[in-house]
Write a protein that binds this DNA or RNA. Structure first.
Length: 231
DNA sequence: CACCAGGCAAGTA
DNA sequence: TACTTGCATGGT
């Protein structure tokens, strides 16, 4: 599986990102934010639904949408599959983009049920690469959604890259500003041990740092990663 | 009021 | 191949 590389501007990464450097980053973030209790969900299905609903959307809004489904007992594979698209769209309305997300959810749930049956455990037992390809074949599931499902629901050691990861690495001069998803993913996975818990904690911490500190332009004051560059 | 949020696919040139 | 745009609610 070869991923695309950029064709222009083949500048090397500005600073060398070593495993030690990444662990320094992780330690700084842990020291500042503490352990993250991320993605609490009662079932694998709930996590998968959440992964789609949270696309470019605040998690608070996602919770409302999930609560709507859960409260009416609609958070099961069969219930979702047999629900009219319009009904589903109305239930998940608070999550925004509700029409397109209803389709995406349907695509995903139907794919799993058709391939593995109503019980999700068959799907979650499959090989990571097979799962990944299957997820990516679903219209509405891109690399981040697929990897989130693999990391947080299937508990596989797959590093999730998001907009914050891009932003933070760029702001700190640790990556090319136009590096693509897979380049950054390799950057982390080539230098860190294959550790699902490390990856899930790390990604959650990056999101915290992004939300709280790396919003403004050059670098935010009191950013926990301020000393990271000179360390 | 403007801006953002735990993306993705389709359209355009 | 490389940009651009639509999708939409709810919080700051």
């Amino acid at each position: 599986m070869k991923e695309k590389r950029k064709t222009r501007n083949q500048e090397p990464v500005p600073r060398t990102l070593t495993g030690q450097k990444l662990m320094d980053m992780f330690d700084l973030l842990v020291a500042h934010f503490g352990p993250q209790a991320w993605w609490p969900a009662e079932t694998d299905l709930e996590m998968m639904v959440g992964a789609v609903l949270t696309q470019n959307t605040n998690w608070k809004n996602v919770e409302k949408a999930i609560e709507n489904l859960k409260g009416k007992g609609l958070l099961t594979v069969n219930a979702l599959c047999s629900m009219p698209m319009e009904t589903l769209a109305q239930e998940i309305r608070p999550a925004g983009y509700y029409n397109i997300k209803a389709k995406r959810l349907m695509n995903l749930i139907h794919f799993i049920r058709d391939q593995y049956g109503e019980d999700l455990s068959g799907f979650f037992r499959d090989e990571t690469q097979i799962m990944r390809e299957g997820l990516l074949s679903v219209n509405g599931v891109g690399p981040e959604t697929a990897d989130s499902i693999l990391l947080y629901a299937a508990r596989r050691p797959v590093f999730v890259i998001d907009a914050y990861t891009h932003r933070i690495l760029n702001r700190h001069g640790m990556s090319e500003d136009q590096a693509n998803y897979y380049e950054l993913q390799e950057l982390f996975m080539d230098h860190l041990p294959e550790d699902q818990e490390l990856y899930s904690e790390f990604h959650a911490l990056i999101v915290q740092a992004g939300k709280n500190y790396c919003k403004k332009k050059p670098l935010c004051l009191e950013c926990p990663l301020e000393k990271w560059e000179t360390e």
